[in-house]
Amino acid sequence: MLFGIAWDTSSGWAFAVSILPILLIGMWVTIQATVLGFFIALVVGLVWAALKAAPLKIISWPAAVVTEFLRDTPLLIQLFFLYYVLPEFGITLPAFMTGALALGLQYSAYTSEVYRAGIEAVAKGQHEAARALNLSGGRTFSHIILPQAIPRIVPAMGNYLVSIMKDVPLLSVVTVLEMLNVARIIGDRTFNYLVPLSLVGALYLIMTLVASAGVRLLDNWLPKQGIPLK
């Protein structure tokens, strides 16, 4: 029994059907961690991209160093650091928040590169026209450059969404009860790993297929009025 739901081990099929609701509870945690992590990655990544594009080296350099560090160290180390080291400095976050934050921070380093490439692909003439019209730097970025960069970056961001989803099981090491962790617990208690793990694999496949289809829909829906996409 887990989460108040009992399982039926009389047959393989009965077992699968009985543990499905338990796994779905874990799947809901996986989805929440994915969405929150992805949201953090999108927001923080944009901040990195803006800082790295700053003309002053004193701003762009530290941002470049931090993102390089985030990208080149394993997610597991960053996760342990946030979970075990931060409390020593008096910062204690729930395991779920720690996990989502770790995912979001590591992926923010990747998304910042996607933003950068998307922003750099906007024609130089767009910056010049904005400058000639005396638009401010902030307005130029938010209303001229970014709207033209977004249609270019959606496919790459979609790939990272799927990657984050597939990295969520790492959060099990800091006690987050996401889907794989739930399946492992069921396996430990019933000595039947085949059924729960197979189910997790199938559910993951469904989730990633749905996410990919969603990204494709978004990509088709986004207006690309005359924006040359490379």
């Binding site: 767009q126 010049e128 026209a129 000639a132 005396n134 207006p223």
Partner: peptide
Amino acid sequence: RKMRTQLGMVFQQFNLFPH
């Protein structure tokens, strides 16, 4: 910024905002 208000420019490649 202040000086630029006196000037306007028409570009070879138009440089209209496509969106």
